[in-house]
Amino acid sequence: MQDQPDVVVLRLGHRPGRDERMTTHVGLTARALGADRLVLEEAAAGRKETVTDITDRFGGPFEVEVTDRPLSRVRSWEGSIAHLTMYGQPIQDVEAEVRAAHREEPLLVVVGAEKVPFEIYERADFNVGVTNQPHSEIAALAVFLDRLFEGRELERDWQDAEKRVVPQETGKRVIDTDDE
């Protein structure tokens, strides 16, 4: 998020035909809740277009990359790594430590799609459980980012937006920013 070291979300794994919507929503959640970049595996390359289109229309900055070597990204990461897993330490027990680390260096947030290699658990500085019950990786990412940024992501300024949602008590209103 603006004026802080980067937060990069790595979507590790993607089952074509099964994870299309989930992977897209991981990207949209990462963008909307303060991450700076999303890294997708080659199998999920088609999701890049959707997330980039939303960024183009509703503003950024936010980048999407595709890699054919996601584990290399983890191995070469220079910064802290948080792996979201229901088997991890409760977020409420580690969130202050994660925030302190992020103030000093970039943060890679690993969000798995299928069985995550044990290497991720070993390389992660933080194995974080939003809850120790089965749940959605999208929910875990949303709660994690909100805790990381302490709600500041909800006040974020969006640059170069073509469209803007106008909050209303009822109904829906989206305006072209050229009309403002």
Rank of each mutant, 00 (worst) to 15 (best):
R15Q: 15
R15P: 12
P16Y: 03
R18V: 15
R18G: 12
D19I: 02
E20A: 13
R21P: 12
T23A: 01
V26W: 03
V26S: 01
R31G: 04
L33R: 04
L33F: 13
L33K: 04
G34A: 09
G34T: 04
G34K: 05
A35R: 03
A35Q: 06
R37S: 10
L38N: 00
L40V: 06
E42D: 15
A43V: 14
A43Y: 15
A45D: 14
G46A: 04
R47Y: 09
K48D: 04
T50Y: 15
V51P: 05
V51Y: 13
T52N: 13
I54W: 14
D56M: 11
R57I: 08
R57Y: 10
F58Y: 13
F58W: 11
G59F: 00
P61C: 08
E63K: 10
E63D: 14
V64G: 04
V64K: 07
E65R: 14
R69C: 11
R69P: 10
R69K: 13
R69T: 12
P70Q: 05
S72G: 15
S76H: 11
S76A: 14
S76R: 15
W77Q: 10
S80G: 14
I81H: 07
A82I: 10
H83N: 01
H83F: 09
H83K: 01
H83R: 02
Y87F: 11
Q89M: 13
P90S: 11
P90W: 01
I91H: 10
A96T: 06
E97D: 14
V98C: 07
V98W: 00
A100S: 14
A101L: 13
E104V: 10
P106N: 04
L107G: 00
L107C: 07
L108F: 07
L108V: 11
V110F: 07
G112Y: 10
E114V: 06
K115F: 10
V116M: 05
P117F: 09
F118I: 13
I120H: 11
Y121V: 00
Y121F: 09
Y121W: 06
R123F: 08
R123V: 01
R123L: 06
D125P: 13
F126K: 02
N127K: 05
V128P: 05
T131A: 10
N132T: 05
N132F: 01
Q133G: 06
P134L: 02
P134Y: 04
H135P: 09
H135C: 03
S136R: 00
A139I: 08
A140Q: 07
L141P: 01
V143D: 01
F144Q: 08
F144C: 08
